[in-house]
Simulated scan of single mutants.
Amino acid sequence: MIGALDVSTSALVAQRTRLNTISGNIANISTLQDENGDAKPYQPRYTIFQTDENMVATGNAPGVKVSSVEIDDKEPLYRYQPDHPLAVKEGKWKGYVAYPNINMNEQFVDALEATRSYEANIGVMEISKSLGSQSLSILA
């Protein structure tokens, strides 16, 4: 039973990281400059999970952990705004401003999926806790 709690806890931590990554993407949907002030749009991030063989529950069910948070190298979205101070000055995109290529609908669906997974793991933990409590009351 403790293994089931450990596996669910690992999933909660992983989904929290995923939600933090998604919220960072949404928060930076209009960020046009990097930390140095250069005209470089924010690049969205995404979370990669992997099984955690060090955490195994009954029935050899492994836990999960965050393998990495990757930067998406999508081409930015360009909008023609020649008077904008961050507009490209020369080349193919002259007069265009580069915006982050973040699909808000995709981010919301990912956040909803992560939230549902988070809730499901809390449900598993509640059931495990209830089973343990009932087992102890039977033995007492």
Rank of each mutant, 00 (worst) to 15 (best):
G3V: 05
A4C: 04
L5N: 00
L5K: 03
D6A: 15
D6N: 15
S8R: 04
V13F: 08
A14T: 11
L19D: 10
I22R: 06
G24D: 14
N25A: 08
I26K: 00
I29Q: 08
T31D: 11
D34T: 15
N36V: 12
G37P: 12
Y42N: 04
Q50S: 14
D52P: 00
E53V: 14
V56M: 15
A57T: 11
N60Y: 08
P62A: 10
K65T: 06
S67W: 04
S68M: 05
E70P: 10
I71W: 03
D72N: 07
D73H: 15
E75V: 15
L77R: 12
L77P: 01
R79N: 11
R79Q: 15
Q81D: 13
Q81L: 15
D83Q: 14
P85S: 07
P85Q: 11
L86G: 05
K89M: 03
E90I: 05
G91V: 08
K92C: 01
W93S: 13
G95D: 05
N105E: 11
E106P: 07
Q107P: 13
Q107D: 03
Q107C: 03
V109K: 12
V109W: 01
V109A: 08
V109S: 04
D110A: 14
D110R: 14
A114T: 07
T115G: 06
T115P: 02
S117E: 04
S117L: 02
Y118R: 04
A120T: 13
N121M: 01
N121H: 00
V124A: 02
V124W: 00
E126F: 01
E126T: 14
L136W: 01
L136Y: 03
